[in-house]
Simulated assay, not measured.
Amino acid sequence: MKLKLELEKKGHGARRLAPILWLALVLTLACAPGDARADSMICTNGIASTGDHQAVVLAKCGEPQFRKIISTGDNNRIVEEHWGYFIDKQRIFIFINGFLSSIVY
């Protein structure tokens, strides 16, 4: 109670600061990823973006740490393939018919 009176006497405006702190908290939580996805990723030799062909991603990002075929179509044609990169944290590049469709963190 004594601290509150001292703040009010000194004119710090602690009551005006509270809404700003709430706004900062709400914005921080709103920006926190649930299922984080990206349209592009900065790699060693460029930026890999959705729509890029596997060869382009390979040239920009290098060989992935792993490759996993999720499904195949007729005549063993690959429909979906996952590539794993560990840049600062794990990234999964998802390719559909040879083209990058999404990047998942």
Rank of each mutant, 00 (worst) to 15 (best):
N97K: 01
E80S: 02
K10S: 10
L7G: 09
A55C: 05
S71Q: 10
D74S: 12
P19A: 07
K10Y: 08
A14Y: 11
L100Y: 00
S101W: 00
N45M: 01
S102M: 04
G84Q: 11
I103A: 04
I92E: 14
L27P: 02
S101F: 00
I87W: 11
L27I: 06
I94K: 06
A18V: 11
I47H: 09
R91L: 02
C31A: 14
Q54V: 07
K60H: 05
R15H: 13
T28D: 08
H82T: 00
R67Q: 11
W83E: 02
T50L: 12
A24T: 13
K4N: 12
T44H: 13
G51A: 06
L5R: 14
G84H: 10
I103Y: 04
I94S: 11
G98W: 00
C31N: 13
E81C: 03
G84K: 12
R91K: 12
L27W: 03
A14D: 05
C61Q: 04
I94F: 03
Q54E: 11
H82C: 01
T44P: 04
N75Y: 02
Y85E: 05
Y105R: 09
K2G: 09
L27F: 06
L21I: 08
I96S: 07
I42N: 15
E63L: 13
S71L: 04
I94E: 04
Y85F: 15
L23R: 05
I92N: 14
A24C: 15
G62Q: 07
L29K: 09
S71C: 06
Y85R: 04
R67C: 03
G11E: 04
L21K: 03
V79Q: 01
V79I: 10
I96K: 06
K4W: 14
L25R: 07
E81M: 11
W83S: 01
L23V: 14
W22G: 11
M41P: 04
I70T: 11
S71V: 02
A30F: 08
L23K: 08
L100E: 00
A36F: 13
N45T: 02
A18S: 13
